[in-house]
Amino acid sequence: MPSTRLSVTGFFISLLAIACFALLLLAQTNAGAKLQPATGVIYQWLMWLGGIALLLGIANVAWLHLRRIQSGRRDWELSLVLIAVLAAVVVAGLINPLGAQGPLVEWIFDYVLAPGQSALFALLVFFMAAAAYRYLRIGRQGGAWMLLGALIIILTQAPMLVPVLPASMVAATDWFIDAPVMAALRGVLLGSGIALLVVAIRMLIGKA
């Protein structure tokens, strides 16, 4: 049966967390300069923890895929490719004194990673085009407003069309962005900030 009492280890961990929190909070005030050595150590720990978490994540992914290969599950060949590429990049980085700037790792970055990432992101324009064709329609509920907004922004964003458009339309768009859009965004920023603060306080006092 789980005990509701705090164990000694749990107590000290909570104490450490509260102390770190208080220290980092104070560091954001004018007393920050005096606390610099202590906060510097905490941030250094955070970076170490982040690095270790990353390594653990990589080890976990590798372990999962090794098990898929071992048990011969569906698409195990893809897992094999993943493990082979992972091993190749890690070994290439480790055996070269230049590390991540070694020629093989650089080649993988230039000819595999960068084009792959760019190509994936470039697909976004096709989804946007499909969405514009299908959903920016007058007949849909609220569609006329969305259509109007999209048309105004597209017309005034195209460098080729800006000199052709009447200056009053460009000015009206600027006002539209500077006044109603800005007001809405500021409201969103303020609202989300306050909500985040409330959630943080609720978590700290154990209400969340």
Binding site: M128, A129, A132, Y133, R137, I138, L151, Q157, A158, P159
Partner: peptide, 23 residues
């Protein structure tokens, strides 16, 4: 910038076509 010009015009054409098809 030229690509952006052409792409935005293509978007306008798509929006108009989509609305015509719907109508």
């Amino acid at each position: 910038l030229v690509g952006q010009n052409f792409a935005l015009i293509a978007f306008l054409a798509l929006i108009v076509t989509g609305n015509l098809v719907a109508a």
